[in-house]
Amino acid sequence: MSYLAVAIAGYLCLGLEEALRPPLMLGQTGIAPYFVLVLVAYIATNASTYPVLWTSLLLGLAVDLTAMRPIDGGTAVINIIGPNALGYVAGAYLVLTLRGVMIRRNPATLAFLTVCCSLLAQLVVVTLYLFRSLFDSAITFNAFDDLAARAACCLYTVASAFVLGYLLERCRPWFGFSDQSVRRVTGRR
């Protein structure tokens, strides 16, 4: 796997995440598709285990660092490092587990795996926020509303997975994935 290509793709997806989400938002609800998670699912579908887990962790960390969270009634913001990084690792691990039984070249495969990956990732994020809210009242957090909104975002991500998946597949040679590594990892399971 070419780490340079993954870094560039991750950088562009992070840019897309905030630039493209407002016009794609459903009304004023804040529900919009994820882009970085599509890349995580794409890499997890094609690369070997540890590079996938480390890449997803770093991409999640980048999302944590760019996503500030309001505290104290919106009068201040902080970066909470960890929830997305751990969520993305969990999501990528799920894709690693599922990819052996999927037809990888089918466009619908990436969409399906992206939804699975993002749902698990967001579940981990919400769980961590929930634990946090038990002893830290600075953050306004409603677990049910938060999970519902994130789940809606995950389902909406299907649309971006088809489009982004097509573009990523066109750039496949740049990523330098080797089919042998995928078969070897899958075969070991």
Partner: peptide, 23 residues
């Protein structure tokens, strides 16, 4: 990362600097 994720807000002020770098 789990420890950092559960760090109370009053001890997480330093993370804003890293957020600034990411920005």
């Amino acid at each position: 990362l789990v420890v950092l994720a559960l760090l109370p807000a009053r001890w997480s002020g330093w993370t804003v600097w890293f957020g600034g770098v990411a920005d």
